[in-house]
């Protein structure tokens, strides 16, 4: 817009409008109120979020665990991918000042979480995550283990209906949830197919690859308390825990629990999972309590 020179008296007259300004309207009830505690937006049931229990999504659980390792205080907010700035959960919203002082908030997407947590937490005796070994073993977790997890959760027919459908695609209307589940299944399929360029998903092969990965991870842990001989658990421990804990706790269907059996073979991984659970998620379900797996159907 062209700015015309405005006579001084008109300008001061203008500036006197509005004649009266009241304090701001208070926000409606549903709007989140932030204290100084950062909020981790993650996949979680509302009950688990309140109790501080583990999320049912591996990447959310990984960061939950990592936050706890570093002693960062946070609260979990149940959310979904639509809410995230990157399109993927989790992310953190933190506010330095209280709400009344400023509405400025900081949104930390998942790819910046590691440095944010390390900056805000206490100092730990962990190994360098940039080391070649950690990188290589992270690939095992993020590829082989993740593919098998996705296959077991989304593409095994019974699991997808009873686990993925309930956890991720829950809606009060069954048509909507089945549409969402179909979308999720297609996405999971697409994801797993990346590693199998022939376009054929052979569950035996997927589970065998994951089994071999677990074997290698277990060998790597050996008799150590934490991976790679760290004095405190680090990001790799969090990554492994996120999968092992969920694989052990989900109520897989009998016959579709290959992944569960694969984890059960490695005592040191079970011990690792238990150590982290006891130390950081004391309220979480224990795998033993869930022993009769998938037998409800």
């Amino acid at each position: 817009m062209v700015s015309l020179p405005i006579p001084q008296f008109l300008k001061s007259l203008f500036d006197s409008f509005p004649l009266r300004t009241y304090p701001a309207n208070p926000l409606p009830s549903r709007c989140p109120k932030f204290g100084t505690t950062p909020s981790l937006y993650a996949f979680a049931t509302p009950e688990d979020a309140v109790a501080g229990n583990p999320s049912f999504n591996p990447s959310c659980l990984k960061w939950q665990a990592y936050l706890k390792f570093y002693g960062v205080e946070f609260k979990t907010v149940p959310s979904n991918n639509h809410a995230s700035p990157t399109g993927a959960l989790p992310f953190i919203i933190s506010q330095q000042k209280s709400m009344s002082e400023s509405m400025e908030v900081e949104v930390v997407p998942s790819d910046k979480l590691a440095s944010w947590i390390e900056e805000h937490g206490c100092s730990l005796d962990v190994i360098d995550t940039d080391s070649a070994q950690v990188k290589a073993f992270l690939v095992l977790v993020n590829n082989q283990l993740r593919d098998a997890w996705l296959y077991a959760l989304y593409l095994e027919p019974n699991n997808s209906q009873d686990l993925a459908g309930k956890l991720y695609c829950g809606s009060s209307v069954s048509a909507v949830s089945s549409f969402l589940l179909r979308q999720a299944k297609a996405a999971a399929r697409q994801q797993v197919l990346q590693a199998y360029p022939g376009g054929v998903l052979d569950p035996r092969r997927i589970y065998a690859d994951a089994g071999a990965a677990l074997e290698a991870i277990s060998t790597m842990l050996g008799k150590d308390t934490w991976f790679f001989g760290g004095g405190d658990p680090g990001l790799f421990d969090a990554s492994v825990f996120a999968y092992t804990h969920l694989i052990l706790n989900l109520r897989w269907h009998t016959g579709e629990n290959t992944l569960f059996r694969a984890v059960m073979e490695h005592d040191n991984l079970l011990g690792h999972e238990r150590r982290i659970r006891d130390a950081f998620f004391p309220e979480a379900n224990t795998p033993d309590a869930n022993k009769p797996l998938g037998s409800e159907s």
Partner: peptide, 13 residues
Amino acid sequence: TSSASASGAAKPL
């Protein structure tokens, strides 16, 4: 382009 693939229930936005 970022994608939501990391979390399983992926859906491009």
